[in-house]
């Protein structure tokens, strides 16, 4: 296609777009609804996903040792535990390290510093922080630590079982995925139908013109392009409107979520970058538009 033909196709498509304003508005609106559902699903899905990962990362088993247990003994237990297939990693924090961390954390707090100075010994225990390879392996590790062999050394095992929270979140995640994808498919279908009908009407309104164009020697694509351009314009209009609606929502939501989850969502996944969201919206809108117009053209534009 030459640049002249391209220019004429765009011009003609532009005229089609504006010729029947309310119809074009309706076509754009359903597309906006479809894109909004899709965007909302995507954002919710990603937020939940990040939340789950976040909590998973925070889960661990902390083993606090009695004061008199010597470091080689602890390291011995550490390597014994590391041999377990369930264990992913173990972090050893010596009593001295725990104390210096504590001091660093409360530096400048005169009361705490004074109290610490008065104590004859280091009051803090040595600790092993154990991470399992997956969530459901924590109980196995906890069971191992509950064995009598460890009782002589271990002062306390701290295992906060977050599995129920995580499972609940995972269920939310699944529901969001199913519901969102389901709704998006339904609305995509509606959008295709509405745009298909709009293009069909444009073809009907322009049937005289199309017939004459054919008879004076227009190529098939010269006749088809304006209708495809029209559907592309619906897609562009809809994705611009949707992204303009997405911006304030993200601006409101992201800082609050970041605060709540203690993360930088924008850094963790590109799913929250506006340009990515816009490109995705535009891509889907164009795809739906082109599918609709192609079907309408095949059925109603006899060239």
């Amino acid at each position: 296609m030459g640049s002249l033909a391209l220019y004429r196709a765009i011009k003609s498509g532009w005229i089609n777009f504006w010729r029947n304003f309310w119809l074009s508005a309706a076509a754009t609106l359903v597309m906006v609804i479809t894109l909004s559902i899709l965007t909302l699903t995507l954002i919710t899905f990603n937020v939940t996903n990040v939340a789950v990962k976040n909590i998973q990362e925070r889960v661990d088993i902390s083993v606090y040792f009695k004061g008199k247990v010597a470091e080689p003994q602890i390291l011995n237990i550490k390597s014994h535990l590391e041999a377990m297939p369930e264990v992913a990693s173990i972090n050893y924090i010596s009593a001295d390290k725990a104390l210096s961390d504590f001091r660093a954390k409360h530096a400048g707090n005169a009361l705490i510093e004074e109290s610490l100075a008065q104590l004859p010994d280091n009051p803090l225990p040595a600790t092993l922080q154990i991470k399992a390879k997956s969530l459901d392996q924590y109980p196995a590790i906890a069971t191992e630590l509950a064995k009598p062999d460890y009782q002589t050394y271990v002062q306390k095992v701290n295992f906060e079982d977050n599995r129920t929270v995580i499972e609940r979140l995972s269920r939310v995640l699944n529901t969001v995925k199913k519901l969102g994808v389901g709704m998006a498919i339904i609305f995509s279908f509606i959008a295709v139908l509405v745009i298909f009908n709009t293009i069909r009407l444009t073809i009907y309104n322009r049937r005289e013109e199309v017939e004459i164009m054919k008879l004076v020697g227009a190529t098939n694509w010269y006749i088809r392009w304006p209708f495809i351009v029209e559907s592309i314009l619906y897609g562009i209009a809809a994705s611009i409107i949707t992204i303009l609606m997405t911006i304030p929502i993200l601006n409101y939501l992201l800082p609050r979520l970041n605060l709540y989850l203690g993360t930088m969502l924008n850094d963790q996944t590109s799913a929250f970058s506006l340009s990515h969201i816009f490109l995705l919206q535009l891509g889907i809108a164009l795809l739906l538009g082109i599918i609709s117009s192609t079907i309408a053209i095949r059925r109603y534009l006899r060239v």
């Binding site: 002249l4 033909a5 004459i212 010269y222």
Partner: peptide, 10 residues
């Protein structure tokens, strides 16, 4: 003019 456009005239 429309017929000429169709035939690709500038």
């Amino acid at each position: 003019g429309f017929a000429m456009e169709v035939a690709g005239y500038a």
